[in-house]
Design a protein around this nucleic acid. Structure first.
Lengths: 204, 204
DNA sequence: ACCTACCTACCGATCGTTCGGTAACATCCC
DNA sequence: GGGATGTTACCGAACGATCGGTAGGTAGGT
């Protein structure tokens, strides 16, 4: 076993595209079947190569999951957290966080919260890394709700419970409303934004 | 292979208790690790018998999952749907459905919605049976919201989307707030009821 | 000559499940 | 009372299949 295999130093454009396909297909299969329910044989068949061929693109199954979750968090940070952190009005910030989060789900097929429980298959240090990144996102939700409370706009509620409820409604979109199943993405985003903001705001 | 093995005709009280322990422990492990991530060896070790010993209590791993989901639906129907179906006021009906649902989660440790995705490991006819039972529950949610709409009390929203959001907030309780983790069960139930009803009602 | 992107063949380990068995207990008959 | 018979609740060993992964290799491109 190569203790510290290096990624390929000079991937070709085709190789890079194949690498991305491997990870995208892996994420998609693991959302449907779970991490342990998806074999490397399944993945190899889905991308049209052998199991051995996969190991040219990945270090291990577990490392692949870790990279998928890291990538998903990268997307969340770049496409949800960073664009909204600077919004001064906490209500607008929350609306935009939820709207952008739903869009990320559709754009990348990254059902992060559906893969999130699969974090249990990682080694503890990797689990901790992912947990901290997820918690930073939740922290922004909680901070925004605290600001709303300070403005007298928040209903009487437990902010931690509300934060988890908000994340669950978003997670549920990937499960209950897969792409192309009748409800438009924009409608779904707005329904989710309105559902959650009506739940937490006094005058709404 | 015995094509139609019969359950034991005359289990002893101790045997019956062991049988129930096998199923309870299996449900608990599968919530934590997933169906495919939980081996029969894991389960045997957890209940203190060999793998072969398990097969005295169960027909197969897959059949065991099916029975666990059936049992969970039985509990849902007896402890949530039946007690609330007869409530005339749709708002009170919804409040009680959500409250009782949360209580069932704590009482039975039945994180139904956390095990629900594991339905994919069943054979299609069994999947269909479970799906129909779950959909009946959702149907009561949708019916209640339609009645609220007829009374002019429902916000402008997509009832299907709202129904899935409501179920997701309940599902999230088992994930984010396991028993004994700081938030009291009664508080959690009321927070969840209020979150959801605030989300869907006009004047709240 | 060297590198990338694969492949075949194979490895040790684990999987779900069964086979053939045992210990303990209950029942029946002599 | 004791032996024979049957049942329940398990067990050790083993099975065929699949698992994640590697060794050694090849074709094609630079």
């Amino acid at each position: 076993m190569n203790p510290m295999p290096q990624p390929n130093l000079m991937p070709t454009p085709e190789g890079q595209a194949r690498n991305e396909e491997v990870f995208r297909t892996a994420a998609s299969l693991m959302v449907q079947r779970g991490y342990a329910g998806t074999s490397m044989g399944d993945l190899a068949e889905a991308v049209g190569m052998t199991k051995a061929g996969l190991y040219h693109h990945i270090k291990s199954k577990q490392e692949m999951l870790f990279e998928i979750l890291q990538f998903a968090m990268n997307v969340m940070e770049h496409e949800v957290i960073e664009p909204t952190r600077g919004i001064a009005d906490p209500e607008q910030r929350l609306r935009n966080m939820i709207r952008l989060h739903v869009r990320v789900l559709f754009k990348h097929g990254l059902e992060l919260t559906l893969l999130f429980p699969e974090r249990r298959h990682l080694e503890p240090p990797q689990q901790e890394i992912i947990w901290q990144r997820v918690d930073r996102y939740q922290g922004l939700l909680r901070t925004s709700m605290r600001e709303l409370a300070e403005q007298g706009k928040l209903r009487e509620l437990d902010i931690n419970v509300a934060a988890s409820h908000i994340l669950q409604t978003i997670a549920g979109i990937a499960r209950w409303h897969p792409q192309g199943r009748g409800v438009a993405e924009a409608l779904l985003a707005e329904q989710t934004v309105n559902f959650n903001l009506s739940a937490i705001l006094k005058d709404s």
